[in-house]
Amino acid sequence: MNSLKEKIERCRQFFSELAPQVKDAQGVEELRQQFFSRKKGHLTLLFEEFKTLSPEEKKAYGRELNELKAEIQNRLTELEQKFQEKASERLIDDLTLPGRKLYWGAAHPITLFQREIERIFISMGFSVEEGPEIETDYYNFEALNFPPHHPARDSWDTLYINDKLLLRTHTSPVQIRVMEKKKPPIRIIIPGKVFRRETPDPTHLPMFYQVEGLVVDRGITFAHLKGTLEYFIKALFGEKIRLRFRPSFFPFTEPSAEVDIECIVCGGQDPACRVCGGSGWKEILGAGMVDPQVFKNVSIDPEIYSGWAFGLGIDRTAMFAFQIPEIRQFYENDLRFLRQFNRR
């Protein structure tokens, strides 16, 4: 006679053969019926048989039988869960619901635009230099060939800290600091915050960003200035943009130039254009050949070396590029403004 022990073992083996063949939740239910059905379930039958045993035999097999029951129940629960999960994975009742968003923070538009400019110059072998925002009169003016008490200083209206210190009105002092430390060849751009004593209005603020560039080497010409800045402006505004160079005045360059680009808003077609005033041109940067006096101030011989420099307002250029109506929007930090630039 097959002992109950053998039957328990066979039942276990049988279950372990059947379980892996189950494919879905319905199969799990069928398997459960096969073992637990009230009349014919394999386990139900084993328990029926168990009832007939003597107390000694009950003692011998009781534990084993209960263990088997627990085992099978656990396994069935596991299987049930497995197929339930799978069902929820597969069956989505509304695919048109929006996907889960991850919020990615936005860089400030000044940062973005500055990086774009930096990238263009870095690709031409320029390196990035920075310098202090609190400066001395010497670095901000005198070394750059602004005579003391000269009206040329009026265009660089200055915020002073005391008789010695001021907030730099341009990033040009860094040109001086670099040329003092390093001999040519020099090929740098200088981005940074600058300050002017300007009453806030739609196009002026007491603080804004500037980027300047400086090249010093043997044989540098005005033609190089033109070629490089043309490349830069085309890289920034597109191959087709038209630009013009016209004479200007800066104390630290000679000859000096201003560069206008064609108005991307009206293309010169609107006589009342808010951006170009109908001229069709928008002034974008100032440039020139480094003044020989500036070279003398940093002990570079202007008979051996020549160079060009330029400066551009990042805020103003970004305003023009993105058609931002007011410069102060950059510093209000309204999230509805800032977050748009995440799509840039």
Binding site: M124, P185, A223
Partner: peptide
């Protein structure tokens, strides 16, 4: 200075007529 006179020459010559040449670099 000489540079000031060169600017006068350039101004009347016309900035537009000066060619555009990308700045050469011999070392990075």
């Amino acid at each position: 200075r000489e540079a000031d006179l060169i600017e006068e020459v350039a101004r009347f010559y016309g900035y537009d007529l000066i060619p555009s040449v990308v700045t050469p670099a011999f070392s990075f």
